[in-house]
Structures are given as C-alpha cells and as structure tokens.
C-alpha cells in the first residue's frame, strides 16, 4: 500500500483526488471556444447540467401531478414551495417577491450538494468559481434592488449609520466600512458554501487516506468515522443550501429596506 502511494507521488495524488477540478477538466471533454475564452464542456459542466435537470424535473413533475388530495410527492413539493415562500419576508413583506429566485437557488444548490455526495461524480458546489458566481448574482440583485427601491442618493447615503459622533471624521469612515462590508457579503457567501462542501469531502478523503498511510488496521476506525462524516455531510448539504438561500434573501431585503433601518 505504502509502496503504491509512493508510486503515485504527491503531485499525481493531488491531481487525482484533491484536485478534482484538474481531473474533471479533462474528463468527458468536448472542447469549445468563444474567441480566447475557453467554454469547453467537461465533467463539471455535465454534472452542473445534471443538477439543473434534476432540480427542474423534481419541481416540474411535482407541479404537473397536482391533485386536490395530495400524495406524498405532492406534499413534499408543496412543502418545498411553502418553505421557499417563507424564506421571503425576512425584513419586510415586500421582499417576498424575490422568493422564487431564492427558492430556485436553494433547490439547485441542494441538488448539486447531494449529487456531489455520490461517488465518482463532481461536486459542483465545491468549486469556488461556481459559488462565487452565484454570490455575485446575489450581489448584483442586492445592489439593483437597493438602488431601485431607495433611489441612488438615499441608498448611498444610508450606508453611513445615523447618530454618529464626530460627524466629519466618522461619517466617511463608517460609510467606507459599510461599503466594504457590502462587498465582503458575496465573498463570504461564496466562500462559505465552497469551503463547507470541500471540507466535507476532504475529511472523508483524509480518513480513508489514513488507511493508505498506516495500513488496513486503521480501517476499523477510519471507515466508521468516514461513514459518520458522510452522514454529517448530508446534513451539511441541506444546511449550506439553506444558509446560502436565506442569506441571499436577507441581503436583498436589507438593501430594499436600507432606508428604514
């Protein structure tokens, strides 16, 4: 075992397992380019599409089988819808109009998280490019709603909290900090999802990798532990999808009602 590990070598190991992105870039590859930009279809894109298709099908089939006396499946879909509806209205009732976006985001991320847990798939949500782009969309929508509802002047002014002492000094300072905070929001949003999903996969990998380092005796401990973490990952998958969705909703609503708070 140890000999095998030595043969693979550190770089190759990183390429093979830890560096899933590299491996995925060359699997199931269809090269495509728009000018200099590479838009090749590879394993990560395939699983992105599978996730989107599963998301759509779960909800679409649910929406076409509607009956007055619902079965279990319809109840699940309706509950999901009701849950999404209650994601809205965190700050103000008007924010509820954004819940279709948040709900779609929730189900999409949840499905991708779950797909990532299946062996030999690609965990799309453990890719920082993916999560940061979603966070960026949230950021764009947040700023759009902030400017649209409050008007540019009021919205920009509202970044400086009222009732500050030493106004000439503190107001620009606090305004700067608040604006900076506005930019860190999408960053943390994307990083949180990425780090949690990646860490879950890494922990399982590390536990199983211990077998390669210390021999098959360790399997007695590391296999049950990795199973436990696997189960925990299911919980994390739901939790992180929820956190991403609800934070998106809250950010948008906070921007909408910036003036009132």
């Amino acid at each position: 075992m140890r000999a095998m590990l030595a043969q693979i070598g550190q770089n190759e190991l990183r390429e093979k397992i830890l560096h899933t992105f590299e491996a995925a870039r060359h699997a199931w590859h269809i090269p495509l380019h728009i000018g200099p930009i590479d838009i090749s279809i590879n394993k990560s894109i395939w699983f992105l599409w599978i996730g989107a298709a599963v998301t759509f099908l779960i909800l679409f089939v649910g929406s076409r089988l509607l009956k007055d006396r619902p079965g279990a499946y319809q109840v699940i879909v309706e509950e999901l819808y009701g849950f999404g509806r209650n994601l809205g209205g965190q700050v103000g009732e008007e924010g509820r109009k954004w819940f279709p976006y948040t709900l779609s985001l929730f189900v999409f991320i949840l499905v991708l998280n779950f797909i990532g847990l299946i062996p030999n798939t690609y965990p799309v949500t453990a890719n920082i490019s993916f999560t940061l782009v979603l966070a960026l969309l949230t950021f764009i929508l947040t700023q759009y709603e902030g400017f649209r509802r409050n008007g540019a002047g009021t919205y920009l002014k509202s970044f400086a909290p009222p009732g500050l002492p030493l106004k000439p000094l503190m107001v620009p300072f606090m305004w700067g900090i608040e604006v900076l905070g506005e930019f860190t929001k999408p960053l943390t949003l994307g990083m949180r999802l990425y780090a949690n999903i990646l860490a879950g996969h890494l922990i399982i990998y590390v536990f199983l990798g211990l077998i390669l380092y210390f021999g098959s005796v360790v399997a007695i401990i590391s296999v049950p532990l990795s199973v436990v973490f696997y189960a925990f990952e299911i919980f994390v998958a739901i939790l992180q999808a929820y956190i991403f969705a609800i934070l998106t909703q809250v950010y948008i609503e906070l921007a909408m009602f910036r003036e009132d708070h």
């Binding site: 590479d38 838009i39 894109i45 989107a52 759509f56 279709p100 799309v124 490019s129």
Partner: peptide, 20 residues
C-alpha cells in the same frame, strides 16, 4: 474556470426562467 462560469450562468438563468 471560464467554462464552468459561462455554463453556470447560462444554465442557472435558463433554470430560473423555466421554474418561474
């Protein structure tokens, strides 16, 4: 990862459109 970003935006927008 330009290809992922590109397809992610396209896919997500289509998904949003279809769902809504």
């Amino acid at each position: 990862n330009t290809s992922l970003i590109f397809w992610e935006v396209i896919t997500f927008l289509i998904l949003l459109f279809l769902l809504i």
